[in-house]
């Protein structure tokens, strides 16, 4: 734990706790510890690398992203027409979340150089020096293995395989390959975030169906408008990091058009999901209202000129971004609500 070059045998952390002046021990012999104190004038004697505490490893797993993964996976599992034993449901969602977290750790390991540049991410465990990159890699790989094997045992081989593919897709295809090479990176990355409800559905039914593909599509087409709205008002960060964000490579006019285009594609898919067996009156009414509102927001963003946006501090873009969070939460919440109504035999 001592810095290289420090005398071995006496951890530096103890040096500062000793009194500064006496150099002889009670027996009159020179104090062997004294020489470690040479040159030390204060109590900040610990010179080793900063050590992580448990919370730093938890931060590696991106807990906020994990909460979205837990929520959508749980909905995918609960709305499926096949009942799942509560213990199996709990263990499955737990390891879907751990798998998602593991891919987050792998992402932080690979992207530590970009994270250090961007204001939003500079305080993450690796760029701030609390966790070493090789530790993050080890945590990511080990937890990926645990999560895939445990999900395979608890929720079936298809669910385990889908989780393995999700981790591979997010860590390798998105993080290592496409994030730094194409401005469509957000679209590709969205696919990784869209898998959890499909995995939850696979735990319950053991298969893939129209409903689970539509839940995938809902998150997949929601992601680009959500993140590009963020990119419109967080412009400088991505530029500094050299990540080819659409706002940087093709300009903000094109980004506004893309937000509208993906929102237009999203709306019919969201409605379609309501017409399947997992939809119901609650979901359909939520979907109609939310999509009309979302389309209106995207249309306003598309119509705005950059000068107008800058003048009001990107108010419309920020409102759209906040609304997009509510959009996804209410869609999946309504699916859950309709499932509860069906279980109570109200509908």
């Amino acid at each position: 734990m001592c810095k290289p070059g420090a005398p071995s045998g006496a951890p530096g952390i103890f040096a500062g706790t000793r009194p500064a002046s006496p150099s002889l021990t009670r027996s009159g012999m020179p104090d062997p510890m004294e020489r470690w104190n040479d040159g030390m004038t204060d109590i900040s004697a610990y010179q080793g690398e900063p050590e992580a505490e448990f919370g730093d490893y938890v931060a590696l797993l991106k807990p906020r992203v994990m909460s979205l993964v837990v929520f959508t996976a749980l909905v995918g599992l609960l709305v499926a027409p096949v009942p799942v034993h509560p213990v199996i449901a709990f263990v499955s969602v737990l390891f879907i979340a751990v798998g998602g977290g593991a891919s987050g750790a792998l992402n932080m390991w690979w992207d530590a150089d970009i994270d250090a540049v961007m204001k939003r991410t500079a305080r993450r465990p690796i760029p701030s020096g609390r966790v070493r990159p090789d530790e993050a890699l080890a945590v990511g790989l080990a937890l990926s293995g645990f999560a895939v094997v445990m999900l395979g045992l608890a929720g079936g081989m298809l669910a385990g395989a889908l989780l393995a593919f999700t981790i591979f897709f997010y860590a390798v295809v998105y993080t290592m390959w496409l994030k730094r090479s194409t401005p469509q990176n957000i679209v590709i990355g969205g696919a990784a975030g869209a898998f959890p409800p499909m995995i939850g559905w696979a735990v319950a039914t053991g298969g893939i169906s129209t409903e689970s593909v539509l839940m995938f599509a809902l998150i997949f087409f929601w992601t680009p408008p959500h993140f590009w709205a963020l990119a419109l008002f967080m412009k400088s960060d991505y530029r500094d990091a050299g990540v080819p964000m659409l706002t940087v490579t093709h300009g903000r006019r094109v980004t506004r058009a893309h937000i509208l285009a993906y929102t237009v594609l999203l709306a019919p898919l969201a409605i379609w999901l309501g017409l399947t067996q997992i939809g119901g009156p609650l979901y359909l009414s939520v979907a109609v209202v939310m999509n009309l509102w979302f389309l209106r927001g995207a249309y306003m963003i598309w119509r705005r000129e950059e000068a107008a946006a800058e003048a009001d501090g990107y108010a419309a873009e920020k409102a759209f971004f906040k609304f997009s969070l509510l959009y996804l939460f209410l869609h999946f919440g309504a699916l859950l609500g309709d499932a509860a109504l069906r279980a109570a035999e109200v509908i």
Partner: peptide, 20 residues
């Protein structure tokens, strides 16, 4: 016994407890 309790010990303890 050495009783020095450094902040680093707290952090190590939190790691050990968490892993446990």
């Amino acid at each position: 016994a050495i009783r020095a309790e450094h902040e680093i010990h707290t952090r190590r303890f939190s790691r050990n407890l968490g892993l446990g």
